[in-house]
């Protein structure tokens, strides 16, 4: 449904997007993850026809974003990371304005306004002025606005940014509900656990390039299959790190100092007991070996670090 082929965008000498190849299948919720400045917003802006790519191509439902921009605009609902609302317009008028702009008939506008406001829990605010709504309500209204013309594709740029925890949860639940409506959703965020709950697939972007892409299950399996362990010793952490790097079941030494060594361990709990035993026999003064929070965040950091260091990028799928 959304495809990019060697997409590039340069701002003077800065390459914001570099040979980005993306393929979002129809009906999936795709999480687009990356640090600030990784090129997420630029990519989404190109897909939303707000920006022209320097080179490469991008397609939304088969329509090319530069040559068929008018068609693409009808096919997408776009919600930028930060957006304002018009003063002196009620919620109903606000939605009616965008509905009319998309050519939705008068009858359908009324019907969809009711339906969408119910979906985003704003039915009781229909006659409120939009500028009097809270930030969380405005974000939800923005989502309703992007659905006014019932587009098959939704492009949401950090929809939960700047929201309080309660509003974030509400927004997450609404986006989960979009899956049932068979929408293809491309959603960017730098908060990975949140995306893991909402998305079917996740793509990690670093410096404008897609460094990893996989289904959420694969990512979770990868994370859970490779636990991060911290080995605590009285001294000799550096020497231990050198030795652990070549041990079976240890795929990576993440960090170390004189008293701690963090490793990625792919073995079972029995393998872990065996490792502890072997280290004790070898003569290391072990204080403890414990599992530290293994999460998507760590995977993300590791992937981006690999990319930074020019090492081969982890292929998840």
């Amino acid at each position: 449904m959304i495809v990019t082929e060697n997409l590039c965008k340069k701002f003077n000498r800065v390459e914001a997007v570099k040979d980005l190849n993306l393929n979002v299948r129809s009906g999936t919720v795709f999480g687009f993850v990356g640090e600030n400045g990784a090129g997420k917003t630029t990519t989404l802006s190109i897909l939303a026809t707000l920006m022209l790519p320097t080179s490469g191509r991008a397609y939304v439902a088969g329509a090319e974003v530069t040559t068929d921009a008018a068609l693409v605009r009808k096919l997408i609902g776009y919600m930028p990371d930060q957006f304002g609302v018009y003063d002196d317009l009620t919620v109903k008028e606000y939605l009616a304005f965008y509905g009319t702009a998309y050519g939705v008939s008068h009858g359908d506008i009324e019907k969809r306004t009711k339906e969408l406001l119910a979906m985003v829990n704003l039915s009781d605010k229909v006659d409120f002025y939009v500028n009097t709504l809270s930030k969380g309500m405005q974000q939800r209204l923005g989502l309703a606005r992007s659905l006014m013309h019932d587009p098959p594709v939704l492009i949401l740029d950090e929809p939960a940014s700047g929201l309080d925890p309660r509003s974030r949860i509400e927004m997450r639940e609404i986006i989960k509900g979009l899956r049932e409506r068979q929408k293809t959703v491309l959603i960017s965020s730098h908060i990975l656990p949140e995306l893991a709950e909402m998305c079917d697939e996740i793509g990690v972007v670093q410096r404008g390039t897609l460094v990893a892409c996989a289904g959420v299950e694969v990512v979770n399996a990868r994370v859970h299959g490779q636990r991060q362990l911290q080995v605590e010793v009285l001294s000799g952490g550096a020497k231990l790190a050198d030795e652990l790097a070549f041990r079976h079941h240890i795929s990576d030494v993440i960090s170390f100092d004189e008293e701690h060594v963090d490793i990625l361990f792919s073995g079972s709990e029995e393998d872990q007991v065996e490792l502890i035993h072997e280290l004790a026999v070898t003569g290391y003064s072990l204080k403890s070996v414990h599992e530290v929070g293994a999460s998507l965040e760590e995977l993300f950091l590791r992937l981006t670090r690999e990319s930074d260091e020019g090492q081969p990028v982890s292929k998840l799928a």
């Binding site: 026809t49 707000l50 609302v85």
Partner: peptide, 13 residues
């Protein structure tokens, strides 16, 4: 400044 322009430009107008 009100950040309403990007959304306006993604409409068919």
């Amino acid at each position: 400044e009100r950040q309403t322009l990007p959304v306006l430009l993604t409409t068919p107008l």
